[in-house]
Design a protein around this nucleic acid. Structure first.
Length: 467
RNA sequence: GGCGAGGUAGCAAAGUGGUAAUGCACUGGUCUGCAAAACCGGUAUGCGCGGGUUCAAUUCCCGCCCUCGCCUCCA
């Protein structure tokens, strides 16, 4: 097991080796639970899941922490709109998120801490930062991190190379006039009228924690002052992760995350996903269009995680077909070695090339390509039971590593029964066919198809399926 | 304006200093009355454009064009 992963901080590939010599500890920035997560959000979570599965499949135990952001401007605003308490509101969307995660075959994190449940941890961290001179209380009771006090600020996002556009952001920040410097960010936000009942006590008065702080506090709590990997969507590099580094390094004696793992965005039809363009999809939207979560998962991992992936409904159809091809391959193998129970623990076997692609910066598309090369090179008629068994084991190993769930044999899907009139037409066609009246047979088939059904002939009869 | 990512067949997407994986779609064949399914094949002399280095470049270098993302609470 020698997984090499690109590290955003050093901009180089690194061999992943657990700091403690035993367990790879990693933190993932989770969702803000104020609505259904869309497939762009899930690209990140699915990729993190593949990373974890590959590590574990390679024999390296993991400790996986992913938070829930259950207090921020959006959760407060939308819970009020919904006429619910913040807790009720976020519990609802958390349940929905979990359901989607299960559907996508995501392994549950070992810890899934919520921001609201860790307010004391965050308050303690702020106190330390103030004591050490890295944070200050403003006139209104908010607390800010003094960016100028941390020399390494900007290393992750290469801020030193940037020229920040200041005009727009200054206007946006007009209510935060009390900051010492524009770049300083909120650790604690003083209570405002629009927060309603959503505030907590602190040494600086009532308020709530800033967004960046929760991840630092919870990573510290569950992973310690230094851990192996921190992950999230590429948009979080700045400012979220930059701020996390600053807070964490300044309030502990550790160096926070050793490596950083960022997932590129999902594009839709060549551009950004947005509600106004009508191209923002949730799992539910896609289910209504007849796509299973397994197919969505395949689609989301079918591009390399560091390259923007262009999602289209056509690419989803393509994913569905690809998954079906793997499923048929497996069925064919099962027919050869009926008694064999596939063992995913036997290693990649014939799929070693695919497995090694995953070790090289998680190259899933290359791994899938290598898998299909094995599929295409296999002649079911020419292999024996032992070979079929090895292929089955290797396939199970790979699908486990990628978290792919192959569709079962079609027989298991409940065959939709055609209406009597359709069946009658099909029966007429069968009789016409038996009478070798081809023009009539073809006309009847067309009629059936026009009504949305397809006739498939067998040796001794026919079946009618939805088109 | 700054920073970053990217432009490879109809669509999607790997990859490489020596001449382009893979999936879908398309297409030829086998099979079928014809189809469908299945199986066996085929399809980029080319990798945004123009230069340069090299025996050799899609791959390295320079310039240009275009797309996308981020630029203070978006995965």
């Amino acid at each position: 097991m020698a997984l090499t992963l690109y590290d955003t901080l050093s901009r180089k590939d690194h061999l992943l080796q657990p700091l403690d010599g035993r367990t790879l500890r990693f933190y993932c920035c989770g969702p803000t639970v104020y609505g259904p997560a869309h497939i762009g959000n899930f690209r990140t979570f699915v990729t993190q899941d593949v990373l974890r599965r590959v590590l574990e499949q390679g024999g390296l135990p993991t400790l996986h922490v992913r938070n829930l952001t259950d207090v921020d401007d959006k959760t407060i605003r939308d819970s009020q709109k919904a006429g619910q308490s913040l807790g009720e509101f976020t519990a609802f969307w958390t349940a929905r998120f979990h359901a989607d995660c299960r559907a996508l075959n995501l392994l549950p994190p070992h810890h899934e801490p919520s921001a609201v449940a860790h307010i004391p941890h965050q308050v303690r961290m702020i106190e330390t930062l103030i004591q050490r001179g890295h944070a200050y209380e403003a006139a209104d009771g908010s607390v800010y991190f003094r960016v100028g006090s941390f020399a390494n600020y900007g290393r992750l996002s290469h801020l030193e190379d940037r020229e920040l556009k200041t005009g727009a952001s200054q206007a946006q920040q007009s209510d935060e006039y009390s900051k010492d410097a524009l770049a300083d960010f909120a650790l604690w936000k003083a209570r405002r009228p629009e927060d309603g009942g959503n505030f907590w006590p602190s040494p600086w008065g009532e308020g709530r924690p800033g967004w960046h702080l929760e991840c630092s506090a919870m990573a510290l709590e569950y992973l310690g002052e230094e851990f192996d990997l921190h992950s999230g969507g590429i948009d979080l590099i700045f400012p979220h992760h930059e701020n996390e580094i600053a807070q964490s390094c300044c309030s502990t004696s550790g160096n926070f995350a050793r490596h950083w793992f960022h997932v590129a965005h999902l594009m839709v039809d060549g551009g950004k996903m947005s509600k106004s363009l009508g191209n923002l999809y949730t799992l539910e939207d896609l289910a209504q269009r007849g796509f299973s979560p397994a197919e969505v998962r395949y689609c989301l991992i079918s591009g390399h995680y560091r390259t923007p992936l262009n999602f289209t409904l056509h690419s989803l159809q393509s994913a569905a077909a690809a998954l079906g091809k793997l499923a048929k391959f497996r069925q064919g193998l099962c027919a050869i070695t009926a008694s064999h129970a596939p063992q995913s623990s036997n290693g990649p076997g014939p799929f070693a090339a695919a497995w090694s692609q995953l070790q090289a910066d998680l190259n899933v598309p290359a791994a899938l390509g290598a898998m299909f090369s094995v599929v295409n090179a296999t002649r079911p008629a020419e292999i024996n039971e032992a070979q079929a068994g090895a292929l089955l084991d290797g396939l199970a190993f790979m699908t486990q590593a990628l978290g792919l769930q192959l569709p079962e044999a079609q027989a298991q899907a409940p065959a939709q029964q055609a209406p009597a009139e359709i069946l009658a037409l099909a029966q007429q066609r069968w009789e016409a066919k038996a009478a070798r009246d081809w023009p009539l047979a073809d006309r009847l088939r067309q009629e059936v198809e026009a009504q949305g059904w397809v006739i498939k002939d067998h040796k001794t009869g026919f079946e009618v399926q939805p088109k």
